[in-house]
């Protein structure tokens, strides 16, 4: 066992233990660590935005670019962006809609057509059973299972008709697929949470206490 001599490792280890102390009960050590994390993350983000975004893309060009039109363009964009802060002034808070509208318009225009293709057309295409799927029994089985699963699950969420007749058994099959999906998600969630805990223990036992390599 060789304890770390690095003060930063000690700080990280103490903060990790402070966060873990919440498992026992809420306490001031946990609160300190939590607030420190939020403060650090925000401080880091703000300074980074300042040095890597505002300085090179706005302040430097406005200060040094000889082209007056570029300056006007950049300042106008900055003013539109600054309208986000009008939320804090109730009388003119409606102005916040301008940058939101621009951002929404740009975002939707750029993403909706592509999302339609990527998330609907390509996914529907992936449910089609083709001749190549039927070449082997295993690929055929998976392809048919996916097709049945998609149809049954969509049927379960079909609320425009009463669930009787043919819709009833199909939607029940849909429930089975949904439950399998939930089970898989839960299993993966357990794995994820344990992984995060393992990561911290690797740090505490390895980097800090030197118990493992």
């Amino acid at each position: 066992m060789t304890l770390s001599h690095d003060p930063w490792v000690w700080i990280a280890a103490i903060l990790t233990l402070a966060i873990f102390s919440f498992l026992y009960r809420e306490n001031p050590f946990y609160r300190i660590a939590e607030h420190l994390y939020v403060g650090l993350a925000n401080g880091y983000a703000i300074t980074f935005y300042w040095h890597r975004i505002l300085m090179p893309y706005l302040i430097d060009p406005v200060g040094h670019n000889p082209n007056i039109l570029t300056k006007i363009w950049l300042v106008s964009i900055a003013i539109i962006g600054a309208l986000y802060f009008t939320r804090f002034i109730p009388k003119i808070s409606w102005l916040v809609r301008i940058p939101i509208a621009i951002l929404l318009g740009y975002g939707c225009g750029a993403s909706i057509p592509r999302a339609l293709d990527a998330e609907i057309i390509q996914q529907v295409r992936a449910t089609i059973v083709t001749r190549s799927h039927l070449a082997h029994w295993d690929t055929a089985l998976w392809a048919i299972l996916i097709l049945v699963g998609v149809i049954a699950t969509i049927s379960y969420f079909f609320f425009s008709a009463e669930r009787k007749g043919v819709l009833k058994p199909i939607s029940y099959v849909g429930i089975v697929f949904i439950m399998v999906g939930f089970g898989a998600s839960f299993g993966y969630t357990v794995m994820a949470r344990i992984s995060l805990f393992i990561g911290r223990l690797q740090f505490l036992l390895g980097d800090w206490l030197g118990l493992i390599k």
Binding site: A110, S111, R114, D117, A118, S185, Y188, A192
Partner: peptide
């Protein structure tokens, strides 16, 4: 949505277990 649909680049993913499903 953006890079593959528009430019056809091949993609791989390394994701957290929570989002695997």
């Amino acid at each position: 949505n953006l890079a593959q649909t528009q430019f056809g680049i091949h993609l791989g993913a390394g994701i957290t277990a929570v989002s695997a499903a």
